[in-house]
Design a protein around this nucleic acid. Structure first.
Lengths: 206, 206
DNA sequence: CGCCGTCTATGACAGCCGTCATAGTAGCGG
DNA sequence: CCGCTACTATGACGGCTGTCATAGACGGCG
């Protein structure tokens, strides 16, 4: 999610990328269209050309991009792990945000979360886009879990738990200006996740 | 957090309450000062009288109120449970939002989360207020856990995990317009929490 | 050349925002 | 009655917002 990801792409893609980038910081409300074109170094006139649906369309596409991005990250995590475990995957997910928070100084949140907080009940389409983004994110996680011998019935539920926990911990970490919450949930939730490998019941594993 | 909590209180308190109420729906950016006084049925002129610090002060106080409110809820949960268990407390915390989402139709989020998303990097004081709110919320939860024989060393960490998970699941639930995520995390995380009772290590607790 | 679709440029618009200045009322002690 | 404090009322201000209207540039193509 660094700046070099914006190079070489079309102006249109850069605008979507920049929108997501800015939404992460100040929320949707504080992200103006003029800010987006400036950040993307794109011509202002292109806004109404590429996004005739206005800000709502731009936000929705930014949310969709974020969902695909998160899904891709999960895929790369799994591919890069020699001995994949649920706790390892979770630690990697947490680690991504830990790195960003320590690098930029807590300025970065999740654009999907921003869209939910700011638009969930004002824009039905954005709410749907956010749900789709979460689904796009949950899918690869659940698939990775089943590949690690987690029963299919629990994989999806655990994926939801992992993403919920990461989102919430990211919120707390931003508030505290410290990665403590992220580190804590990684440490506490990891063992539970590993306990689900090969188990059929809840935690009392067969 | 229903409307009757606003009755009998001073106009000033009603404004703080209304600010929190409105922030939960549309975020801080979409919450105008004029909307707040209208919702609180308070005189507009009182704004600059009670909140000379402007919107920032009002938001900060709303966040503080939300933190104290959440802490009070936890205390009441614990007091009302015949046989208190960590999973029972967590289920109660989740249940509060489940009820609200099903009642109002997913319109309600957490005002503290809204403040973090919208103001975390724009207003240092709001960021601090949000951190304080989370701390005020974490405290009673951790204390309740120690009262349930959870080792003191883990109680605080588990409280952070619980709150993170609830916040994140609430985010997902709002996006999906469904309480599924909340129900899922309650079901999946509950057993782990109970497993920490009397344990000293991680999950293998004897 | 002329035409056309894609893209860009720019200024204007109405509307809302938070804030401030100013004035006014109500109650109360003297 | 005055004076003082607490609170309310109201209109205005500059600034920013998303959106739109209009016009211009560029490049392929017949």
């Amino acid at each position: 999610m660094t700046a070099d990801e914006a190079d070489g792409r079309s102006p249109r893609e850069r605008m979507v990328f920049s929108a997501a980038q800015l939404m992460r910081r100040g929320g949707v409300g504080a992200t103006g269209m003029r800010d987006v074109v400036a950040h993307a170094r794109a011509p202002r006139g292109s806004l109404q050309h590429y996004f005739p649906g206005g800000k709502e369309q731009l936000v929705n596409e930014a949310v969709g991009w974020a969902g695909r991005y998160a899904a891709g990250r999960v895929a790369r995590f799994v591919a890069g792990m020699a001995e994949p475990t649920p706790s390892g995957l979770f630690a990697a997910m947490v680690g991504q945000w830990t790195d960003e928070l320590e690098a930029v100084g807590a300025a970065s949140g999740c654009p999907v979360a921003a869209a939910v907080v700011d638009c969930a009940d004002a824009s039905e389409s954005t709410r749907t886009a956010a749900a789709a983004a979460f689904a796009a994110w949950t899918g690869p996680v659940a698939r990775a879990l089943t590949d690690m011998n987690v029963p299919a019935a629990r994989a999806e539920a655990l994926a939801t738990l992992m993403i919920s926990t990461v989102e919430g911990a990211l919120l707390m970490a931003r508030a505290e200006g410290d990665v403590r919450a992220l580190a804590t949930v990684a440490r506490e939730l990891g063992p539970l996740l590993d306990g689900a490998v090969g188990a059929v019941g809840a935690v009392d594993g067969g």
